[in-house]
């Protein structure tokens, strides 16, 4: 395993994000967006061959599809039908781990995909809607990917609309414990975080090469729990980069983080 010296931040994020699927065993890995999808695909090709995956349309695959347009003679490795209604049977079974990119994530790990500002009846900015976030968040483990770590995403206060349940004691449903909620990793363009601090406080897990703890704190609207020594996010290996390149032949990953910076910004 040779650590690469020349890699992009997107590739670093893909490898870091793939860690969240490594110990999932035989569960559906859902990555929405290019980097989360490549992360789940990389995990299936390396650390967790038992991971399950769909073609993002209606079929389960025994091998992940490359991202983007594929040649006319490409044959996907389908193994079963998996239309949208059946996805919910899977979601509610808990055998899934999804990685998505909400617009806001607050200090409780609650997220917002629905609306910003104004009032609920007349929001300033209407977004997608709650989508499947309420169900995902209470049914199975989830991770987040944030391509631009700033205080608009990680904002002070509570989300304008809470699409997904988090570690907020005030909203905890009766008969549930905060430990029932399972938010795994938060991968951003600056670092990797989780909610493993005291009382489920957000915690810095690793810093991407060349990023400081001050940068992370300044760009997060609430206190981030940090130990005295924070490790550096591990560089991709050349083998991982080869797999990523094969999974993303059109290099869509180059367009996911602004200006496609190098992975090591030291």
């Amino acid at each position: 395993m040779t650590a690469a010296t020349d890699y992009t931040l997107a590739e670093l994020c893909i490898v870091a994000a793939s860690q969240s699927f490594a110990d999932e065993g035989e569960a559906l890995g859902t990555g929405i967006g290019v980097i989360p999808r490549l992360a789940a695909s990389l995990a299936m090709k390396t650390t967790n061959p038992d991971l399950m995956m769909t073609d993002s349309e209606a079929w389960m695959l025994s091998e992940p599809n490359p991202v983007g347009k594929r040649s006319a003679d490409f044959v996907p490795a389908t193994e079963s039908w998996m239309g949208f209604s059946r996805i919910f049977d899977n979601v509610w079974s808990g055998k899934r781990h999804a990685m998505l990119g909400p617009t806001q994530i607050d200090k409780f790990g609650q997220s917002n995909t629905s609306a910003l500002g104004g009032t609920y009846d007349k929001p300033k900015v209407m977004m997608l809607g709650a989508r499947g976030f309420p169900g995902n968040s209470i049914s199975h483990p989830n991770s987040f990917f944030v391509p631009d770590h700033n205080t608009r995403v990680f904002m002070d206060g509570e989300c304008d609309f809470v699409s997904s349940i988090g570690y907020n004691p005030a909203r905890l449903p009766r008969g549930h414990s905060l430990d029932d909620i399972d938010i795994r990793l938060v991968i951003t363009n600056l670092c990797v975080m989780d909610f493993g601090g005291p009382d489920h406080q957000v915690r810095l897990v690793s810093l991407h090469p060349g990023v400081t703890v001050q940068q992370v704190q300044e760009n997060t609207g609430y206190p981030v729990s940090m130990s005295d020594t924070v490790p550096t996010t591990e560089a991709p290996t050349t083998a991982q980069l080869d797999i990523i390149a094969a999974l993303d032949p059109h290099n869509q990953r180059a367009h996911q983080i602004k200006d496609n910076p190098p992975g090591n910004r030291a």
Binding site: K122, G129, R131
Partner: peptide, 22 residues
């Protein structure tokens, strides 16, 4: 246009989860 309708407050909504609709 859905966005416009929401942002002008011209429609009522019942916003639910995808699975709740099912």
């Amino acid at each position: 246009y859905f966005r416009k309708a929401r942002q002008s407050g011209s429609i009522e909504v019942m916003e639910i989860d995808e699975g709740m609709m099912l």
